[in-house]
Design a protein around this nucleic acid. Structure first.
Lengths: 183, 183
DNA sequence: TAGTGGTCTAGACCACGGA
DNA sequence: CCGTGGTCTAGACCACTAC
């Protein structure tokens, strides 16, 4: 599983390993991962190396850390991967179009109640929110979007380009580690 | 400068210190920062702690790392801060509107020649690109955008919301540390 | 060769959460 | 109380860059 003699960094091997477990469904959204110390012992690597892998997956939205509790698989990333594989990509392929060009959109928003609860942060703490524009042969076909927060967002989202509709769930994740100095 | 007895993490103190140096202009875009070992000695802290601070600033687009060379202030982040203070924000205030609501847009794109050169990466290596929607009292007023890369982007950018024009430069930064396994 | 960032170790202490 | 993640140390070796 982990090859210490490989030129590929250990943290990156572990990162890909965990990512693949999530994508295969061996780790499901909401699941608690083994602790950092368990990974450390299991693979005979330093805890700091484990942390580097997990940090990257947290940045990428795959995992959520909770102090004193554990590290959990994010609720949203997996669902998005799924819909990518089942609905849009397959559909575009079926139409003979190239679905591999896609782009991500992010914004930083204050969290609402639902998001704050899900991520175990305070309400209004800033979070990243993702939406996606789906491309087929370079032409935008769909826009992944969620509940609207204010009119400006509505206006922005309503472009004539959204000719393809898709089940819509924004992904949110914490913007910064907290220092205890926020309040 | 660094208070070890503070409950604020050392890496975060250093992070804010460097960030403020950039914003004050004491560190200018393109400038080379002191090496990690220099920071380590100067403040009597571990190099890993220095790295944690710098890592965060790299993620946020303030700094760029170059193996074997050094860490440099990003070319774009500072300019954006400037334009934010001088043009849009002042203008909106002058009109009696609230410019504090803004949102960021990101996408992941293959780098073109210009970006690849600027960031010292290979052409087509993925980079983040930012654009911004400027809000005044919650109504989109401007869209920060750069040279267009393909028609789909053109289509997406041409919304009827871009009623306010602004000097436009996308910010780009590296997506991942490189492992040597890319090719 | 010397300096840089990249990776990694084997510990340590802390604050937090739950039983 | 114990286990968790958060922070931090004082080293180490590597690959890369520049001279």
């Amino acid at each position: 599983m982990i090859d210490k003699s490989s030129p590929v960094p250990i943290y990156y091997q572990l990162e890909e390993h965990i990512k693949s477990q999530i994508e295969k469904g061996e780790l499901k959204p909401g699941d608690c991962l083994p602790s950092e110390r368990e990974y450390s012992e299991k693979y005979g690597i330093s805890r700091m190396t484990v942390r580097q892998a997990i940090n990257n997956l947290v940045s990428d939205g795959y995992l959520i850390r909770q102090k004193g509790k554990g590290t959990f698989v994010s609720e949203r990333k997996f669902e998005q991967k799924l819909s990518e594989l089942t609905s849009f990509t397959e559909d575009m392929k079926a139409r003979g179009l190239k679905p591999d060009s896609k782009l991500l959109q992010f914004e930083i928003i204050p969290s609402d109640d639902a998001i704050a609860t899900q991520l175990s942060i305070k309400r209004h703490d800033p979070v990243y929110q993702i939406r996606r524009i789906r491309l087929a042969d370079g032409v935008p076909m769909a826009q992944t979007s969620g509940p609207l927060r204010d009119e400006s967002h509505v206006a922005f989202r309503k472009t004539e380009l959204s000719t393809y509709s898709e089940a819509a769930t924004p992904i949110c994740w914490r913007r910064k580690p907290f220092t205890g100095q926020e309040d």
